[in-house]
Simulated assay, not measured.
Amino acid sequence: MRNFLSGGGGDNVKQTDEENLKEDSPTSKKASSKFEGKFPLSKWELIAAISVFLIFTTGLLSVYATMPASQYGNIKFPRNISDLRLLKDHLAMYANDYPAQFILGYCSTYIFMQTFMIPGTIFMSLLAGALFGVMRGLVMVVLNATAGASSCYFLSKLIGRPLVSWLWPEKMRYFHAEIAKRREKLLNYMLFLRITPTLPNTFINLASPIVDIPFHIFFLATLVGLIPASYITVRAGLALGDLKSVKDLYDFKTLAVLFLIGSISILPTILKRKRTYE
């Protein structure tokens, strides 16, 4: 303002034009694009992430080391339903002979995969149904999935903000806006997200602490909200012979049922809004 009154306005306009030209230049855009694509974690955040991973890995290997010997050459992580059938056959006798050790190894593996977002937990859920039946398998899957999601929540609280914003910027803005609109009935909305495949569970685990969802709401919504989908998956594990692909688990009818159950969870929010507008 002082420069403008003293006759320096022309120089300021000229300087602003020069800055705008620099910002619009191809070289500037290229540098900006390069900066935006840069790996988001700082050196210390990366060290923290690696440290946590090594601690969990050491714990998992320690659990495996205490388990009775087996023919490990016949055991590999399944990549499809055929692999899962073979794995189930190899593990059935082992689980029967050493139930406590097997359950410890199963739970440790499930939590490890869920914490570090390693794909394949759906095979673990099918395996639980095949080996333990519906009720025991369902309890194991829901508890392990909740424990793993909680670990992922706290890991994201430590280093997740730059990573999630880098990987899913648009989805993160959408999620933040939706959470802001539903603060009063946050548990209902989180239940809806957990029950229905509206957003991937991995994204919910990572993004929840960043948008300030309290842990007790996150935990309760996860514990209860995962039951319907887990039941479907665990129950399918009883009939692995009839299952051709993982995609067969969630056909149109199954998805419709999940959305119906999820809609019931957000019904109080809808009714409250309706009363407010009236």
Rank of each mutant, 00 (worst) to 15 (best):
N3F: 07
F4Q: 10
F4E: 08
G7C: 13
G7R: 08
G8W: 03
G10K: 11
G10F: 09
D11A: 14
D11F: 12
V13S: 09
K14Y: 02
Q15S: 05
T16K: 04
E19H: 00
E19I: 02
L21I: 04
L21K: 09
E23P: 04
S25M: 05
T27E: 14
K29N: 06
K29G: 08
S32Q: 08
S33M: 13
K38P: 01
P40T: 02
K43V: 07
E45P: 01
A48R: 04
I50T: 05
G59E: 01
G59Y: 01
L60I: 00
Y64K: 09
A65T: 00
M67I: 06
A69G: 13
A69M: 04
G73N: 12
G73M: 08
I75N: 10
R79P: 10
S82F: 04
L84K: 00
L84V: 05
R85H: 04
M93T: 14
D97N: 08
P99Q: 00
A100R: 07
Q101M: 03
F102E: 05
G105R: 01
G105Q: 02
Y106R: 02
Y110G: 05
G120N: 06
I122H: 07
F123I: 13
S125Y: 03
L127S: 01
A128C: 14
G129I: 00
G129M: 02
G133N: 10
G133L: 09
V134K: 13
M140W: 04
V141A: 14
V142I: 15
V142P: 14
L143F: 03
N144S: 06
A147G: 10
G148E: 09
A149Q: 05
S150R: 02
S150L: 04
K157S: 13
I159W: 01
L163R: 03
V164I: 15
L167T: 07
W168Y: 13
E170M: 06
R173H: 12
R173F: 03
R173W: 02
F175T: 05
H176R: 13
E178H: 12
I179N: 01
A180K: 10
K181S: 04
K185A: 14
L187Q: 03
Y189F: 15
F192K: 13
F192Y: 14
L193D: 06
T196D: 09
T196N: 07
T202V: 11
I213Y: 04
F215R: 11
H216M: 06
I217V: 15
I217M: 15
F219Y: 10
F219L: 15
L223S: 11
L223I: 12
L226E: 06
L226V: 14
I227F: 14
I227L: 15
S230L: 01
Y231T: 12
Y231Q: 02
R235I: 00
G237R: 02
L238E: 11
A239H: 11
K244S: 15
V246Q: 07
T254Y: 05
L255N: 14
L255M: 12
A256I: 09
V257G: 07
F259P: 11
I264H: 02
S265H: 04
S265N: 08
P268K: 06
T269S: 15
T269P: 09
I270Y: 11
K272S: 15
R273T: 11
R273I: 09
